[in-house]
């Protein structure tokens, strides 16, 4: 789990940026651009819209920093702005079908898996599963998509997701459960999981060890 500790240096950057220091804000942008883009790309469905939404989120952060009181982590607050920017962008553009839904099919989505030594067959199966999940995610409701992406990609805790989306813990928990169930149901109906059975067996053992 990623824990976002606001370091002294980051607090200083936040303070200076809140006072209008663009250099300090630029440093914050560089620190968080990858995380924000990872979220906005998936929520918006393509890198172009994702970049636009990410930029809008940072601009909103710039505007809102003087009033940011640090009740939440800066990253959590930024995720919230990003979610809002993505929602606004999607609503404003009346998303076309071809671009709707989250996309895991970005350029980076086709990069090699970080697994140090996946066999060619394993890599192929994972890519296949990833694309299936990408398509299945499109069918989820926006709120289910959001919680899953924040949980699985950004590894936010339930509490952090609640802060980012202004939800209570019970709602976060139920949404994640329903989102996973919905996604799983779609994948099972498509026959995706049998193709990944071998991977599942491997992960099952790892899960018990982690728990």
């Amino acid at each position: 789990m990623i824990t976002d500790f606001t370091t002294t240096q980051e607090r200083e950057l936040l303070t200076n940026a809140a006072r209008g220091n663009r250099d300090a804000f630029g440093e914050l942008v560089r620190r968080y651009e990858k995380k924000v883009l990872a979220l906005s790309n998936r929520l918006c469905g393509n890198p172009e819209d994702g970049a636009d939404a990410a930029q809008e989120a940072f601009v909103s952060a710039w505007r809102g920093l003087p009033n940011f009181r640090g009740d939440a982590n800066f990253s959590t607050w930024l995720y919230r702005l990003t979610c809002n920017a993505c929602t606004d962008l999607l609503r404003g553009r009346q998303r076309r079908d071809t671009h709707s839904g989250p996309s895991l099919n970005d350029e980076e989505a086709h990069t090699d898996f970080p697994d140090p030594a996946p066999s060619p067959q394993e890599a192929a199966e994972r890519r296949e599963l990833r694309e299936e999940i990408r398509d299945a995610l499109r069918q989820l409701s926006p709120e289910h998509r959001q919680v899953l992406i924040l949980r699985e990609i950004h590894q936010l805790s339930y509490g952090e997701i609640g802060e980012a989306l202004s939800l209570d813990g019970g709602t976060v928990k139920s949404r994640i459960h329903r989102a996973r169930e919905s996604l799983r149901k779609i994948l099972i109906e498509r026959g995706t999981f049998p193709a990944a059975n071998r991977l599942r067996e491997q992960e099952r053992g790892a899960a018990y060890e982690q728990s």
Partner: peptide
Amino acid sequence: VADALAIRDAFPDIEETVVP
């Protein structure tokens, strides 16, 4: 649990995100 872990495994990592 196995399916959920497979889904998790298929989600891309933040580090894979390409920043323009």
